[in-house]
C-alpha cells in the first residue's frame, strides 16, 4: 500500500497547469477550487466541507451525475477547466416494519 502510494506520487508528472473546478451545492451556491489535474479529490472534499462547516460523510460529490471517488483525480475523470461538481446531501430513507 505504502509502496503504491509512493509510486503514484513519484510517477505523476507535476505540471504547473491548474484547472478550475466548481463545486456547487443543491441551493446553487458555488465554491471554486484551483486544483492540479492529479490532485486527489479527497483534498477538494476536505476543503469544501471545512469551508462549509459540514460533516464530510453527509455530502456526496457527483460529476456528470456519477459519484466521484475520493482517491480519484480530475485527470482520471477527464475533467477540464471550469467543470462543475455537484455536492449533494446524503439520501437517507427506508421503512420500519414496526410502523
Amino acid at each position: 500500500m505504502a509502496d503504491q502510494m509512493k509510486q503514484e506520487e513519484g510517477t505523476a508528472p507535476a505540471p504547473a497547469e491548474t484547472i478550475n473546478i466548481i463545486v456547487r451545492d443543491q441551493s446553487g451556491g458555488e465554491v471554486h477550487f484551483k486544483v492540479k489535474p492529479h490532485t486527489k479529490f479527497t483534498k477538494v472534499f476536505d476543503a469544501y466541507c471545512s469551508k462549509k462547516a459540514i460533516v464530510k460523510d453527509s455530502i456526496k460529490f457527483l460529476f456528470d451525475g456519477q459519484r466521484i471517488g475520493s482517491d480519484q483525480s480530475p485527470r482520471e475523470l477527464d475533467m477540464s477547466d471550469g467543470d462543475m461538481v455537484d455536492a449533494v446531501i446524503e439520501q437517507l430513507g427506508g421503512y420500519h416494519p414496526s410502523n
Partner: peptide, 28 residues
C-alpha cells in the same frame, strides 16, 4: 480503479443495514 461512478462504502455505512435503521444512497 478509474471506473466512473463507483461506490465508496465507509464503515459507517455498515450501520445502515442494521435492523430498523434507514438505508442510505451508498447502500442502494
Amino acid at each position: 480503479r478509474a471506473a466512473v461512478g463507483r461506490v465508496e462504502v465507509t464503515a459507517e455505512d455498515i450501520n445502515r443495514i442494521e435492523a430498523e435503521e434507514f438505508l442510505n444512497d451508498t447502500v442502494i
